[in-house]
Design a protein around this nucleic acid. Sequence first.
DNA 1: TAGTCGTGGGA
DNA 2: TTCCCAAGACT
Length: 360
Amino acid sequence: MKENVQQILAHFHIKQFQHDLIHWFQTEQRDLPWRKDKDPYKIWVSEVMLQQTRVDTVIPYFYHFIEKFPTLDSLAEAEEEEVLKAWEGLGYYSRIRHLHEAVKEVKEKYGGCVPASKEQFSSLKGVGPYTTGAVLSIAYGIPEPAVDGNVMRVLSRIFYITDDIAKGSTRKKFENIVSHIISHDNPSDFNQALMELGALVCTPKNPSCFLCPVQRHCRAFAEGVETELPVKTKGKAPKRVSFRAIVLMNEKGNILIQKRPPRGLLANLWQFPNDEHAPTRNDESFVKEISERYHVVIRSMERIGSFEHVFSHVVWHIEAYKGNALELQMGDETNKWVTIDELKQYAFPVIYQKIWQAYE
DNA sequence: TAGTCGTGGGA
DNA sequence: TTCCCAAGACT
C-alpha cells in the first residue's frame, strides 16, 4: 500500500465518473429477477446466492427459492431439511445454514424487518462486509461500499492498483476508496454499476475497453496495462482423496442414507454409506468397515463405477458400489432406510447424485 | 494470515 | 485437458 487514498484520488473526476458509470448502468443493465423490486429479503437472498457463484447458475435457484419461501417469515419458519433441499447443488452450504439462522434472528429481534443499521445487519450470521454494503445500498439506499471481486478488478484497473487481491487486507483499501467515490445520490446504482461493469465489460480476460463507459477515467487503459491487472497470487493445488461408497438396498427395497456432520465439508447433506473417514485398501476390508459402522450384513456387492469430484481445496475420487443388505439395527436421526420416493426429499451433494444416477 | 468451504462454465 | 474461476464468509 504505497499510496494513500488522497494520492490515489488526485486528479480523479469523481462526479464525472459517477455520472458516466451510473448512466451506463441505467441503460445497459441486465434484466435480473432480483432487480424487479427492492424487497430487502429478496435482495439479501440474491446476494447470498451470488457469493462465488455465477449469475446464470443463480437465476433458476432464485426463482425456485423465492417461490418456496416468498417472505422472510416463511423462510424463518421452514424446516432446515426443506431449506437445505432448496439449496441442493448450489454449493457452499454454510451460506444457507447461516442465512436460515439469520432470518430467524431477524424475525425474533426485528419483527421480520431486515435491519437498515450497519451494526445490526452485519452482526447476522453469514453477513460479511460485502453483503452488508450490497443489501444496505441496494435495498435501503445507504452509501456503504460493496466490494466484491468485480469491484476490486475494476478499481485496480481504474486506479492502477497493484495490491494482491487474494489477500484479505486488500479489500479494505478498496472499501476506503469506494467510500470516497460512491454516489450519495444513488449508492444502489453506483455499487451495482461497478459490479455490472466488471461482469459485462471489465472482465478478467479480454476486457472490452473499447466500449467501456469509464474508459477516460482508467489509468490502466491509459498505460496499456489493463490485462496485467488485477494482481492475484495463485492458490495451492487441491489435495487428492480416494475412498469407496456403496448404495445399499434391503429386502424391503429401502435405501440406506446417512446425514453428514453439522460442520465441515458438505455439512448436513446426505450421502450413501462410505469409508471417507477411514479409506480401505480392498473390497474385503471395505465390506468389514461398512458392516460394522452401519450395522448391516452385505449379502452381495457389485462395482458401478468410479467418480471424481473437484472441490475448492480437495479432490474426491470415489469407487462406487451397489449391493443388497440386511439391516441389523433400526435407523436413527443420521442413518435412515428410506424408499426411493422418499430419497427425493433429502439434499445430496452432486457427486452422490451422480452415484445414484449410476445405480438406477 | 491462510485454509476451509461447491459447483459448473468458459477459454 | 487443464486451468481459472463467480456478486465471500468464517475460523
